[in-house]
Design a protein around this nucleic acid. Structure first.
Lengths: 224, 224
DNA sequence: CGATTGTTAGAGTAATTACTCTAGGTGTCA
DNA sequence: TGACACCTAGAGTAATTACTCTAACAATCG
């Protein structure tokens, strides 16, 4: 059986994702777990520490896979794997991006950590794009590459917020969840499309079809 | 002299943008204006109503200029004007986008209004893009056009959030504000770049230089 | 003048909420 | 058995904060 500490984190994450961090009190978390507030505060000094720890988890997962493989060239399959992994993680910690503005305002320490995380991730992202260019899967000037990188980052970081703004929580079942996540990947594929070459370009249409579920457009999905 | 009601709205907007809606209490707003809380509540039933009214203002301004001119073709200057106007407005109401997630969670009525607003704006945006295509300034399939539209929307709506996450409030003077706003326009120009044709393509480099202040890249600006 | 309408002050309240404190259980190892 | 570390309960508190209430001021109009 998992430790109380872990269960608190898991429950907090679930509640934050469902209702938003602001609306979920420490007492709610304790109640959901059927433990006392005192117990919760035995494991975490304060609510901030819970958020902080959830961020640490998320950060660690992203850094783990956002690496350029050494000793071999990048393939177009790698590119897809990156997208899948990043958006998957993003989605798991979606409360974080939805309320990023406030969370960082309320905790300067977290702001610095987030800025460092962004810097490192963008740096790694640039390595990946350079690797893809080097492998002949992508053609772009340095300037184009950087603007593409920034746009990709912003889009990824904001996708869950965009979805949540338009789709109220109660409409979001697991089915729609998965669909909208894949739709996010589709949007990023479209972002990169003009710069793709070689094998990546050959598989573009296949990829598009794979992630654009059914014949629905992104807008149709959101506004049904 | 402007009315108390207007001054409350202006002050609330300024404080919300500076500190975030969550951290600014109604008492803060009253204190900043040197009026009593009672006075504030005479003009607004509650805090939600202030936010709601600020959104109404913002919404009205965006809808006012996001129109396709009748009786003439679109020019590339129109395109630039749209970007300037949209991002300008976005910036003015930046607290709204920074805390959109929570604001919509806390007010279902606002969520519906926002969804309607997004739908209408995206619809108008599509008209604009179609107009540009018709004028030979842009070449894209319907599918490409739609994904471009969605990406543009998400990017615009998230730009302020992105900037604010990486640049702490105290570093943000008016100078840097303007620079980062223009940098946002630069990023959107890059997003559209692969699809530009004709005059729009001819002016692309000029536009890029105009909005990419100095020789700094977006990342250098943010992380300096 | 008196009455009415719109506006303001400011003390006060009810509710929320993050967090504390004390006391007591539970398992483990000597 | 007893001691010790770990864990848990739950009542309680201090602070915040959105919001109310009453009284009064000011301008206008009959």
């Amino acid at each position: 059986m998992t430790s109380t500490r872990e269960r608190i984190l898991d429950t907090a994450l679930a509640l934050f994702n469902r209702h938003g961090e602001r609306r979920v009190t420490t007492n709610h978390i304790a109640a959901e777990l059927a433990i006392s507030p005192g117990n919760l505060y035995y494991h975490f000094r304060n609510k901030t520490e819970i958020v902080s720890e959830l961020f640490r988890r998320y950060e660690a997962r992203v850094e783990a896979f956002l690496q350029v493989p050494v000793g071999r060239a990048l393939t177009w399959q790698d590119k897809v794997a990156y997208l899948e992994a990043i958006l998957q993680n993003m989605w798991q910690a979606r409360f974080f991006h939805r309320e990023l503005g406030h969370l960082l305002d309320a905790d300067e320490h977290l702001r610095r950590r987030y800025a460092d995380f962004a810097r490192r991730s963008l740096d790694q992202g640039l390595q990946v794009y350079c690797g893809l260019r080097h492998a002949g899967l992508l053609e772009a000037t340095d300037e184009e590459l950087e603007s593409l990188l920034v746009n990709t980052w912003v889009l990824i970081a904001s996708w869950t917020g965009f979805v949540h703004a338009l789709v109220p929580g109660e409409r979001l079942d697991e089915e729609l969840d998965r669909t909208l996540l894949r739709q996010g990947i589709y949007q990023i594929i479209c972002l990169e499309a003009p710069y793709l070459r070689g094998e990546a370009l050959e598989h573009l249409d296949t990829m598009k079809d794979a992630y654009r579920q059914g014949s629905h457009s992104t807008l149709e999905l959101l506004f049904e």
